[in-house]
Simulated assay, not measured.
Amino acid sequence: MRNLPLLLFFIFILPGCSSYKIVPDYVFNSIDKKALYIKSYDETLKLWKVPFEEMDVTTSYGIAHIIISGPKTGEPLVLFHGTDASSTMWFPNVKEFSAAYRVYAIDFPLEAGKSLSNSIRLNNKQTAEFYNEIFKHFRMENINLLGISRGGWMVTYLALQPGNAIKKIVLLSPAQTFGGISNLGKVLSAINLKMFPSQKSTNRFFEAFSYYPNEINAIFKNQLYLAYKYGNSKPRLLNMMPFSKKELKSLKIPVLVLIGDHDIVNTEKIFVKAHQFIPNVETAVIKDAGHFISIDQSEITNKKVVEFLNKNE
């Protein structure tokens, strides 16, 4: 069953349904390749230092796969991963985040992971509805959102939607949120990895995006490599225009923005815009950290995030 066409059909039993629903997999074009990726995903999950449960939730836009940790009585903290990194990327952070918060890490449905979209593309409005249906499923209130890179942009977009129940947001190295990419040349290493996946291009990718590329866990590195080797996610930069002055001014909730001092996506210049337009914002530069700030400097990042979330406004 190798090299099956892109619109290969997989059978899933959707929760709460008495019948089968057949949907295409728009990310993986082979059952065997997807199986190899899922095996690596599960290997990375073994790095999580706290108990967790995995759950699938049916939405209007496909199946959402969610990893849940922390006390059931804790306020919700929803995690939005970076491109193709999947929810497993939070392995250095979930222990501290879930000490007091009910943590929900959601795989984006059109990237490598365990979520599954029922459409070949989702616009921003549809993506927001996908997440809001998950929030509604779990009856979330006073929701805290945390996103890194592309996930940071999505968190900001969700916080700008009318009638939301979002309490605070945390943006880690947010892509395209306050402006364009700082070092496009190095960021293109991700495109090179997507087009020509190999161990060499993988190493160059981590060297560009991390300050300590050799210290990133090899299990997670392998998972991300297989995401690019076997996955077929589409870049979403055209869907991610920087937010306007008017939009940023409308963010009345507390906002925390953290970037690394060696981030190739952002520089400290974004803080000028953040402080000028966002009414209630905190910012900080994390020393010796690249774009993978949550991995490069997990201890200080975790501390700053938890302190911000615990603060009474």
Score class of each variant (00 low, 15 high):
M1W: 05
L6H: 06
L6N: 13
L6W: 13
L8V: 12
F9I: 14
F12P: 02
C17L: 10
V23A: 11
P24R: 05
Y26R: 09
K33I: 02
K34L: 08
L36T: 05
I38P: 04
K39W: 07
S40R: 02
S40V: 06
L45N: 14
K46L: 14
W48N: 13
W48S: 07
K49C: 04
V50L: 09
F52V: 13
E53H: 12
V57S: 02
V57L: 04
T58G: 01
S60C: 07
H65D: 10
I68W: 05
G70N: 07
T73E: 03
E75D: 13
E75W: 09
L77M: 02
A85T: 15
P92R: 08
D107G: 13
F108C: 07
L110T: 08
L110E: 07
E111K: 01
A112R: 09
L116D: 02
S117C: 13
S119A: 15
N123M: 08
E129T: 11
E129S: 13
Y131D: 00
I134S: 12
F138S: 04
I143T: 01
L145D: 10
L145P: 01
L145M: 04
L146T: 08
G147Q: 12
I148N: 03
R150T: 13
T156Y: 02
T156R: 00
L160W: 07
Q161G: 04
P162W: 05
A165V: 06
I166S: 01
I169E: 05
L171R: 00
L171W: 05
A175L: 03
T177F: 10
G180F: 06
G180L: 05
I181N: 11
I181A: 09
V187K: 08
I191G: 05
N192W: 11
N192I: 12
A208I: 03
F209D: 10
S210T: 13
S210M: 10
P213D: 00
N214H: 04
N217P: 13
I219K: 14
N222V: 03
Y225N: 12
L226E: 09
L226Q: 15
A227H: 07
G231I: 10
N232W: 04
R236I: 02
L237D: 10
I253G: 02
V255E: 01
L256G: 01
V257A: 01
V257L: 07
I259F: 10
I259Q: 02
D263T: 08
V265H: 01
T267W: 06
Q276M: 08
T283A: 11
H291V: 03
D296C: 06
D296M: 09
E299D: 12
K303A: 01
V306M: 06
V306L: 14
